[in-house]
Design a protein around this nucleic acid. Structure first.
Lengths: 223, 223
DNA sequence: CCCGGCTCTTTTGTATACCAAAAATAGATT
DNA sequence: AATCTATTTTTGGTATACAAAAGAGCCGGG
């Protein structure tokens, strides 16, 4: 499990540290509430403290850790409130994204990638590749936001998607089959340029995801 | 105009550099497209490069500068598209915030600070303190988001408010009197716990702000 | 036994000095 | 004039050092 960074790797060190720590948090190797010490991480990953600091700053930005002045960073404690807040904000932004995506498709934007993702998901479900199903589902949501064409929206949603990945890792999800059906309906609405329908479908799809996640998290939180 | 940091100032250096550069951008002292060199800033503000880097990172997060690998940061170029995207995302988030604020007030949350801000705005308009009017108007919007009680929403909106301050600095605004009237209506709806009305009023208030800003910016952009 | 204060240690935030490599720039050449 | 080349800047990163704050441990008193 040597996660040492190869010395000559022209991608930014900070980015790599960010990814590695994030992976650790999402995978549960860094438990909630654990302190992230700069020295510790810099030694573990064989980098100096500067890229570590940069990574931690970004982790804070994306809601995975909390930092306190002169006391450093700790992995955040996920609460049911966090999940509810996340779903509320997703409802705001992703429903708008779905509507805009439909509008832009109607205006001639090519939206083929959505269908592709659905096809891949079909395959992944049939092959029982659960990780891929989750990844493709997230990619589907991200693709809708991308289709909306609003760069600020894309930027604003990015931290939400990071959190979602985390939460879905902790609290397991409802039926992949059901979700794919909803995605298909939503995809058809968008590719058909039906803005209002896309909005409504996105809304109910996201809202349907809330309860199961809350239930799942409630169990992992207090066993 | 020596902006040197006093040596013994127990607020974080990075934070101060962030504020100073931000001030410079918003005030137009750093023009759009200008490069921000780390060495330059660190000498100007009498700090080392570390807090400067941290400040620049945060400025990028908040959409004021753009960084390119190995080429550093430049002050962003504001376009009409940026403004439109900003208003679209604001419509998503702030209307939701207004609705939630009303819901929470109806559920017993004290919302007195809104009325206070309106009173102060009244005074500021009468005294012709334009800067204060702008500041108070921004504070009014921020207070609604705060009242929504959704911490993730508050966090998500923060970078938007930063951009607004910048844009409003470049493109002047419509009548303060009209805006205050709209704020008052919205305030009454929220304090009366009328969620749907608050939503509608917030929507039209924000949307009414779009055109004037676009017009104003179009002029300053190509004279 | 618990509490308040007193060291001692750890960790952050920052400074300084330095380096490799990529960009920008100036200069030389065709 | 345009292109290739050499020189300087600038970034991204390392290593090391240090003051000051936070935390841990210890100690004595109620």
């Amino acid at each position: 499990m040597s996660e040492t960074l190869t010395a000559r790797d022209d991608e930014a060190r900070a980015e790599q540290v960010y990814q590695l720590v994030l992976e650790g948090i999402v995978a549960g190797r860094y438990e909630q509430g654990v302190r992230l010490r700069e020295r510790e991480l810099s030694e573990l990953y064989n980098v100096s403290r500067i890229p570590v600091r940069e990574a931690i700053q970004r982790l804070e930005q994306d809601g995975f850790v909390e930092t306190f002045p002169r006391r450093g960073a700790v992995v955040r404690q996920l609460t049911l409130t966090d999940v509810n807040e996340l779903f509320d904000v997703r409802l705001c932004l992703e429903t708008f994204a779905a509507r805009m995506a439909a509008v832009r498709v109607a205006a001639g934007e090519p939206g083929s990638r959505l269908q592709e993702l659905l096809d891949d998901t079909r395959q992944a479900i049939d092959d029982d590749r659960t990780d891929d199903v989750v990844r493709l589902s997230a990619a589907f949501h991200a693709e809708i936001v991308r289709l909306s064409g609003n760069r600020l929206l894309i930027e604003s949603v990015k931290p939400l998607f990071g959190r979602m990945r985390w939460i879905f890792g902790l609290a397991h999800n409802r039926s992949n089959e059901l979700q794919r059906d909803e995605h298909m309906e939503l995809c058809n609405a968008i590719l058909g340029g039906k803005a209002d329908l896309a909005y409504t479908l996105a809304y109910s799809h996201i809202e349907l995801g809330r309860e199961p996640v809350l239930m799942g998290l409630a169990q992992t939180l207090e066993p």
